[in-house]
Design a protein around this nucleic acid. Structure first.
Lengths: 337, 337
DNA sequence: AAATTTTACGGAAACGTTTGCATAAAATAT
DNA sequence: ATATTTTATGCAAACGTTTCCGTAAAATTT
């Protein structure tokens, strides 16, 4: 039941292969009558062009790759959604790869994509590992790439991010405003652009009110159980009254840690987090979140990439797009009344 | 900076193209010495085989497609994760498509995949629309396909599901056991296999205790706001004391509806739901869930598909795999004390 | 009416692989 | 020493498109 090809159409209609091909792509040098005949037969036989043949011949595949750390994460799933919506509109296809925060795996994926398999790449860096050597072949081969959220600073490529620093300043100020005197910043990985920016914002805000509040820094990782242990220990020993979770997962873990220790949120400790959790308002207590424009970031990153692919003459597509996050204050940071 | 090809390697080494090709795929008819030379140069020049050429020549692409309704859904993102883990292991690539519950879009995707673009398909049906005509060409062309969760009964293909009926019976009994006398089942779409099964389980459980409890049926849809309206109205008018949400989204909406009406969960109304929400235990109140083995279902579906692709002689791969869900009882269905 | 352009199509060469077939040289068997 | 097999390689044809080039016929211009 092999698929039907252009060659078969040609034979059936007593036309040259090239004629059929041109008719299908609506070339101007084919008569209306012939086009109609070809299209009719193609429809009738349900002809579908072979994507591999076509991609081989033209040197583009109408396919992009999305490389992300993981998918079980509200942020990334919303981003994907945004990406897919514009890819769909442009009639592009999307290959998806997960690095699971593993730079080794990241390198392998990149390596494979160097073959011309995709026309462009959308990427958010893996957290563990500071070596970016494996990214350089991308630029050498000239494959268009756009980074979003977790960017790679040593590669000259367009980026789409949110205003991590500013949002962190605001969030930290909020914590101080509601009375926190000892705030802990939960870091996910020092090699991550977002984590650095957020931490810098945090520290800046603390520094701005010099001496009024104490700050703590807790380096967490990607292992949930280890994180829970770290956070629990910190809560028990250092007794902070405020927690700034750099990512959603750490906020969730903090909730669990508080429950385990019998600490009340927000009475004993106030918590806020960068997060795209849809149920944030339904949590016990509702979680104050800095909500990132995930969907828009995906759309935006994809749009920039497609601009690159379409080789827009005005090469002034935003090199660095920043889309603002917004903070929603909820009960987890409510001041004692 | 065009990519380097087998032809270049051949020229460089004074070998025939075919020899290089065979050396790279480690054919037995190439001498060890030659193989070594070829591999060395390939490594040095960072040769990457052209996937499109190779896919065209052999008639397989080492690529599978995953077609799902949406991704901003904990169930599907976990499934994808499972799928990707086995695809990665098998060195396959994953194309992803979202139908957004739109059968029209679903048909288009299927249509495109008929071209031999992928070796196999993993699919979960879109909710709206009962017409499955667009799926038949898949079988005609003989493209391997496995359905998971939302299956298509009129296509003879392997399926991977969870025990929807049994779980629903259990869940409904639980609601009755904690004292519910008037239980509403929130349906998402009558055209969905899972919804039907779950509803049947619900009705069976009710029927088993004939006359003791009253049952309600609320047909919801995919529009959140409309759903909220429907649920709020039902809560206000019919005053059920138990809600069985067929999918996570409807449980969340129910929480919001209760909040809007000032109804207390579980005192006024008890709620449970099929759900993979990670924060279920942190909700206010913690939500009783029937948690589906999403990751395992993804792995399983992918495994079945790869068995088909590898044309295992013993064609007795499970036609219908069922992986059990488990219910976790939490405060949202706690009996009044 | 002859010269030129336009229109509509066909032939064939690519794109980068894989693979069936052919074949020299080397190794083994007669 | 000759005949046969094995080993290691090369040639060329695919896979299904797209596209460069060529060219009859038709249309237009001179």
């Amino acid at each position: 039941m092999s698929a039907i090809t252009i060659k078969m159409l040609a034979r059936e209609l007593n036309l040259a292969i090239s004629t059929v091909s041109r008719a299908l792509m609506d070339s101007y040098e084919i008569s209306a009558a012939t086009k109609e005949k070809v299209h009719a037969l193609a429809r009738q036989l349900n002809y579908q062009p072979n994507h591999y043949a076509s991609s081989l011949r033209r040197q583009r595949s109408k396919t992009i790759a999305v490389i992300i750390p993981e998918i079980s994460n509200n942020f990334f799933s919303h981003v994907i959604n945004g990406i897919e919506s514009v890819a769909q509109e442009k009639n592009y296809h999307v290959l998806i790869y997960f690095t699971h925060e593993n730079p080794q795996k990241e390198a392998e994926v990149i390596q494979h994509l160097l073959s011309g398999r995709v026309d462009g790449i959308l990427m958010s860096m893996a957290g563990n590992g500071s070596n970016h050597q494996h990214l350089h072949p991308i630029r050498e081969q000239g494959i268009p790439i756009v980074f979003f959220d977790r960017i790679c600073a040593d590669l000259d490529a367009p980026t789409v991010t949110t205003d991590d620093f500013d949002s962190s300043v605001l969030a930290t100020r909020h914590l101080m405003d509601v009375g926190c005197k000892k705030i802990a910043y939960l870091s996910i990985s020092p090699h991550l652009s977002i984590d650095c920016k957020r931490m810098q914002g945090f520290q800046q805000a603390i520094a701005d009110r010099q001496g009024q509040v104490e700050s703590l820094l807790l380096p967490c990782g990607t292992d949930p159980e280890r994180n829970q242990e770290l956070i629990t220990n910190m809560l028990a020993n250092e007794k902070p009254d405020g927690i700034f979770a750099s990512v959603e997962k750490l906020a969730i873990t903090s909730y669990h840690a508080c429950a385990a220790l019998g600490l009340a949120i927000p009475a004993d400790v106030k918590i806020l987090s960068f997060s795209n959790l849809e149920t944030a308002s339904l949590l016990n207590p509702a979680l104050t979140t800095i909500i990132q424009p995930a969907h828009d970031m995906g759309k935006s990153a994809a749009t920039v990439l497609f601009n690159m692919l379409e080789k827009r003459k005005n090469r002034n597509w935003e090199r660095n797009t920043v889309i603002r996050s917004s903070m929603i204050i909820r009960r987890s940071t409510q001041m004692a009344s």
